[in-house]
């Protein structure tokens, strides 16, 4: 069907007439799509061979799986979910504090990472490189490194979240500053304004909506990863959930899953709503 799309709209006429049926640009684009599709197909074959994964295994095991859910997971057992609400607040706090502290650090770093406001392009590359490293190393690896040096608990979960948050927010804040800085910075330059007043009076007020929008986005990401980080030893609701899953107490675990999902959904809805309000301003 896709091939059909690529060959549609080819007008009648032959190359002999000097009539090019398909412009070169579209040809190039098609070739690029073909290459992408070929790479995906190759990767699919290679990885299927490697794992010998058969998707139809799901249908063979469907009964098993449904029986497991109906017999062992439903209904959720809230009575035995000790520490549910305490750990929930820990997880929420972890996410908020990581976003808050990460936001402050990124707020300071983003002016160094933006081409508009940075003192030199070397600093831009340096800060962006560091941010990229913090972003691209999975949170879980940061967690392991910190666990080796600092031990287990919510403090470590917070630090691991903080690292990824700083990497993410510095990059996004810098892009916001890049967007707002250009013309008004020039106007202030012509008045002979100094560096810090320029930031305080022109860049920051114009960038605040962008900053707030990314901050909200970061809260949503962090509340999601706080659950995962917790399960790997970062404390909070994830850690208890993991414990119950490993001990085969699925009904208790289900209670934890429901509460965690509910909180993530509620925070997602609130941040989405606020983001829309901010962006429509």
């Amino acid at each position: 069907m896709l091939a059909k799309f690529f060959h549609r709209a080819r007008p009648h006429g032959s190359k002999k007439d000097g009539y090019r049926a398909v412009p070169d640009e579209i040809k190039k684009q098609r070739r690029l799509y073909y290459i992408v599709i070929a790479i995906i197909a190759l990767a699919f074959i290679a990885t299927t061979v490697n794992t010998s994964f058969n998707p139809f295994i799901i249908f063979f095991n469907m009964e098993n799986f449904i029986a497991f859910i109906v017999n062992d997971m439903i209904p959720p057992n809230f009575g035995r979910a000790v520490g549910l609400w305490d750990s929930l607040i820990q997880t929420i706090s972890m996410a908020f504090l990581a976003t808050f502290v990460g936001g402050i650090i990124s707020f300071c770093l983003c002016f160094l990472a933006s081409f508009q406001t940075s003192p030199s392009s070397v600093v831009v590359r340096l800060v962006r490189g560091l941010a990229s490293l913090q972003r691209n190393v999975p949170t879980i690896i940061w967690l392991f490194i910190f666990r080796m040096t600092f031990g287990i608990g919510i403090t470590i979960g917070f630090v691991a979240l903080l690292f990824n948050t700083v990497g993410f927010l510095t990059r996004m804040f810098a892009e916001v500053v890049d967007e707002v800085g250009n013309e008004s910075m020039e106007a202030l330059d012509s008045t002979g304004s100094a560096y810090l007043p320029k930031l305080a009076q022109c860049v920051i007020p114009a960038a605040i909506p962008g900053f707030v929008s990314w901050l909200l986005f970061s809260v949503e990401i962090n509340i999601r990863s706080a659950g995962i980080v917790g399960a790997m030893g970062g404390g909070g609701i994830g850690m208890l959930l993991m414990g119950h899953l490993n001990a085969f107490r699925y009904r208790t675990a289900f209670a934890f899953i429901l509460v965690l999902a509910a909180v993530i959904i509620i925070i997602g809805v609130i941040t989405d709503y606020l983001r829309e309000r901010v962006l429509s301003k």
């Binding site: 295994i57 095991n61 098993n64 799986f65 497991f68 859910i69 062992d72 997971m73 999601r224 659950g227 995962i228 399960a231 994830g238 959930l241 899953l245 699925y250 899953i257 965690l260 999902a261 509910a262 993530i264 959904i265 997602g268």
Partner: peptide, 18 residues
């Protein structure tokens, strides 16, 4: 609802029956 649940939870649940 599915998106709100971390993926490792699904993996652990499927692990039980597979």
């Amino acid at each position: 609802f599915i998106r709100a649940i971390p993926s490792f939870v699904f993996v652990l649940l499927v692990l039980v029956s597979l």
